[in-house]
Design a protein around this nucleic acid. Structure first.
Length: 243
DNA sequence: TCATTAACTGAGG
DNA sequence: CCTCAGTTAATGA
């Protein structure tokens, strides 16, 4: 991958959530970054690791997950290009969950020392990432409400609606179709149901002509019904700094 | 390997 | 009695 394009999605996202200009964000493009490729299912960092760098997703999808002592896996979040899913390792030394590549991924590794120095020299950049971290927390609150309180079909629709919104910011979703490279096993782990029940829910939404999820591709079949089912209000993503 | 479906079961409203 | 969801098992792509 062209070294310049490693930070494209990041800059795009930061422009959306911080309102800063391309010029103000130029500093991000100049950071020393090591590019590394990951295979599907390859762990980026595991629970218990002590990372010395943060990883920026330049291409591909990752997810955060935790496994219980009995081996049950819970997916905590899905991550897309432009995001830095282990930014917290900058200040929390030991990883408390796993970060795994979902697809072939191109990650940009940025050393903690470099980021800390950047934050000290340019506090407005640090504030921007502080804001980004708070949005991350808001997404977890929404995820919790989703799994704890919504019926299964709404749960799936909500996950899809949020992902679509985030993909749009980095230009990876435009029409009524977008990528979500999760097997039904993983969709179940994200929803907190078995893979078989996830399959039943998908089947139902397909039969009702609301949304189709097939081979890692999501297609919205009825926007109005989808919106209603998803109970999705984009406010918690805080993608527009002026509101 | 992943997706799909049926049949059965139980919880809970 | 109905809906939701887990288990088991069989089968299709």
């Amino acid at each position: 991958m062209d070294p310049r394009s490693i930070t494209d999605a990041l800059v795009r996202r930061m422009r959306a959530i911080s309102g800063k200009t391309e010029e103000e964000l130029q500093v991000l493009r100049g950071l020393p970054i090591t590019v590394k490729a990951f295979r599907p299912d390859q762990a980026v960092v595991r629970e218990g690791d002590r990372p010395t760098e943060c990883c920026l997703i330049a291409a591909g999808f990752c997810l955060r997950s935790k496994t219980t002592s009995s081996g049950q896996q819970q997916i905590l979040s899905i991550h897309i290009p432009g995001e830095i899913p282990d930014l917290q390792s900058l200040y929390l030394q030991v990883m408390d969950h796993d970060l795994v590549a979902l697809t072939n991924c191109t990650l940009g590794l940025i050393s903690h020392a470099v980021v800390r120095q950047l934050f000290r020299r340019q506090p407005e950049i640090a504030e921007m990432f502080w804001r980004d971290t708070l949005i991350d927390a808001a997404m977890f609150r929404e995820w919790l409400v989703n799994i704890g309180q919504r019926p299964a079909p709404s749960r799936l629709a909500h996950i899809l609606a949020e992902l679509r919104d985030r993909l749009r910011v980095v230009g990876l979703a435009d029409g009524d179709s977008f990528e979500m490279p999760l097997t039904q096993e993983r969709i179940g782990e994200a929803m907190g149901v078995t893979a078989i029940h996830a399959n039943r829910v998908i089947k139902q939404l397909r039969a009702d002509k609301i949304v189709d999820v097939h081979r890692g591709q999501v297609t919205i079949l009825d926007e109005a019904k989808f919106q209603e089912l998803a109970d999705f209000d984009a406010r918690y993503l805080h993608q527009s700094p002026t509101l």
